[in-house]
Simulated assay, not measured.
Amino acid sequence: MSTTESPSLFNDLEQQSTRTLLTSMNQLDQTVPLVVEKALPQVERLVEATVAALKAGGRLFYIGAGTSGRLGVLDASECPPTFGVPQGLVVGLIAGGDTAIRKAVENAEDDAEQAWRDLSAHDINEKDIVVGIAASGRTPYVIGGLQMARQRGLATGCVVCNAGSAVAAAAEFPVEVVTGPEFVTGSTRMKAGTAQKLVLNMLTTATMIRLGRVKGNKMVDMQLSNAKLVDRGERMLMDELGIDQTKAAELLQLHGSVRAALAAQSGH
């Protein structure tokens, strides 16, 4: 039996106080970053493969089901506003389609051929990289998608939370974060989901930094899509150029992005 499905280390949960429940969950959660740390060499290899694919004109596709699929969709959707990359450079696909983001779709994850159909709808090609996300490591939707992608010469990776899984075996660049039993037995939206979120954050953030989408430590390509982000952009310009907010606001409005404003001021 997979360790993510093994019995919780805690019993009689319904008899415990709220504080005891929260303390126990928090103690378990603190083990997650340590498990991710052990997988950093694997994450590094996946980042390097992703950077290479995107530099060559490819895209990053996530495939997953349930919580894993939702985490992929979340990470993909945050890349354009954070890093200013075009929609479609990072794509999250979930078994059952977009309906499954909000509401579970029965048996969607059990179709081993559907992921490739979903990928094919995006005209996937050998320049792209496909990363499967599956806490169990045995989701047919993910296994089938990775196998078909690999057969066609695409780079493949995965993020799983059990050792020696079929999903990892199907991927060229597997990341295994072995999170162990959940607080509520089998509820992989908890520790496993947290571990997956950490790894996906690392994957896209490190990739985008390597692709030049961050300057210093700032999101200079972020989309100025709300008042908070405009304010953040103004503060970046104030810090970098030593100017007041009025001048920063003028430059940001004129050039449309922090990067463009900085480039104009430096004469590049």
Results as ranks from 00 to 15, higher is better:
83 F>L: 06
102 R>T: 13
105 V>G: 05
74 L>M: 13
192 A>H: 10
96 G>F: 07
79 C>Q: 00
76 A>N: 00
154 L>T: 04
93 L>P: 01
91 V>M: 05
63 I>K: 07
112 A>I: 14
151 Q>A: 15
133 I>L: 12
162 N>W: 10
125 N>S: 14
69 G>I: 07
96 G>L: 10
158 C>A: 11
121 A>W: 03
119 L>K: 09
179 T>W: 08
79 C>P: 00
81 P>Q: 06
192 A>Y: 13
119 L>A: 04
163 A>D: 15
75 D>E: 12
156 T>K: 06
192 A>C: 12
152 R>E: 13
153 G>F: 10
163 A>C: 13
74 L>D: 08
183 F>M: 13
140 P>H: 07
184 V>K: 08
169 A>R: 13
119 L>P: 01
71 L>Q: 08
178 V>I: 12
67 T>P: 02
91 V>S: 02
164 G>M: 04
114 Q>E: 15
145 G>L: 00
106 E>W: 12
59 R>D: 07
103 K>E: 15
187 S>A: 13
76 A>L: 01
109 E>Q: 11
147 Q>Y: 13
61 F>W: 11
64 G>F: 04
74 L>P: 04
173 F>A: 05
64 G>I: 06
135 A>I: 09
122 H>G: 06
144 G>H: 03
110 D>C: 13
99 T>N: 15
196 Q>F: 09
